[in-house]
């Protein structure tokens, strides 16, 4: 068979001929039993190959030796990790204390202020009037203050209420006046702050004379205050 015929034969078997070429080829096969036999053989070879590789043996590596090796690897890294941690622990304290300074190479974050002392300082920025949100905030704050107190870790918390969030500190609207008072009594490191801008706006725009709960302090602007706190190195959480 000529080589171009052989290519055609292959193309026929592989379905690569156009419809016209295919019709032509079928015609040719009718006249030439040898060509038909060849086509049949190639088709069979195709099927045979497909059968031979339909289900190759699955990869073995998940079993036996390799798993053993990886277990040892895991154990080894575990032990070494512990060693490393212990080694780190034994280092002088300065290393740990200065670490935030290192982190703040390009002035991001609020790290220098935090690095100066170990006191955790958090400013919560409440702008939501939802009593459920306020309740959860108070629970969180109480839990944190109690936990830090129990561990003798220094903590300062400010709750800045601003815009709709002022509801928490308004005598007539708050659901938690007593709770706020109890918390403020129990934790001297907790401060509730009201935004004067919001109070003024309520007076001017809606004629409301705001009365605050006795434990609230007033600052000029809630937004300014939280920005200032962040600059001073406080962590910021918007509620």
């Amino acid at each position: 068979m000529s080589s171009s015929n052989e290519l055609d034969l292959n193309a026929f078997v592989d379905g690569e001929l156009t419809a016209d070429q295919q019709a032509e080829f079928l015609e040719a096969m009718r006249d030439d039993p040898e060509l038909a036999r060849q086509a049949c053989e190639l088709g069979q070879l195709k099927a045979q190959l497909r059968l031979a590789y339909a289900s190759p043996p699955p990869p073995r590596l998940r079993g036996g030796a390799r798993v053993g090796a990886s277990w040892r690897a895991i154990a080894a890294s575990g032990i070494l990790l512990v060693l490393g941690v212990v080694a780190g622990w034994l280092l002088p304290d300065d290393v740990e204390r200065n670490r935030f300074v290192v982190l703040d190479a390009d002035g991001r974050g609020q790290t220098p202020a935090t690095a100066a002392n170990d006191e955790t300082r958090i400013v919560f920025h409440l702008t939501n009037a939802d009593p459920l949100v306020a309740a959860e905030l108070l629970d969180e704050v109480e839990g944190m203050l109690a936990a830090y107190q129990a561990d003798h870790r220094p903590l300062r918390v400010e709750v800045v209420s601003h815009s709709d969030g002022l509801a928490l500190l308004r005598q007539s609207l708050t659901a938690y006046g007593t709770r706020i008072h109890e918390l403020a009594q129990r934790f001297p490191n907790l401060t509730f702050v009201a935004c004067r801008n919001t109070i003024d706006r309520l007076r001017v725009e809606r004629g409301i004379e705001v009365r605050l709960v006795p434990d609230a302090e007033v600052i000029d602007s809630g937004v300014n205050h939280v920005v200032r706190r962040q600059k001073e190195g406080w962590s910021y959480i918007r509620v």
Binding site: N10, Q44, A47
Partner: peptide, 27 residues
């Protein structure tokens, strides 16, 4: 692709015939 394929198939058939596998009777 076409020329490699046709040579590959020719070679496969030779090899299989050497092993005594005639194409027609084993499928």
């Amino acid at each position: 692709v076409m020329s490699r394929l046709s040579r590959a198939r020719r070679r496969m058939r030779e090899l299989l015939e050497q092993q005594g596998i005639g194409c027609a009777d084993v499928i």
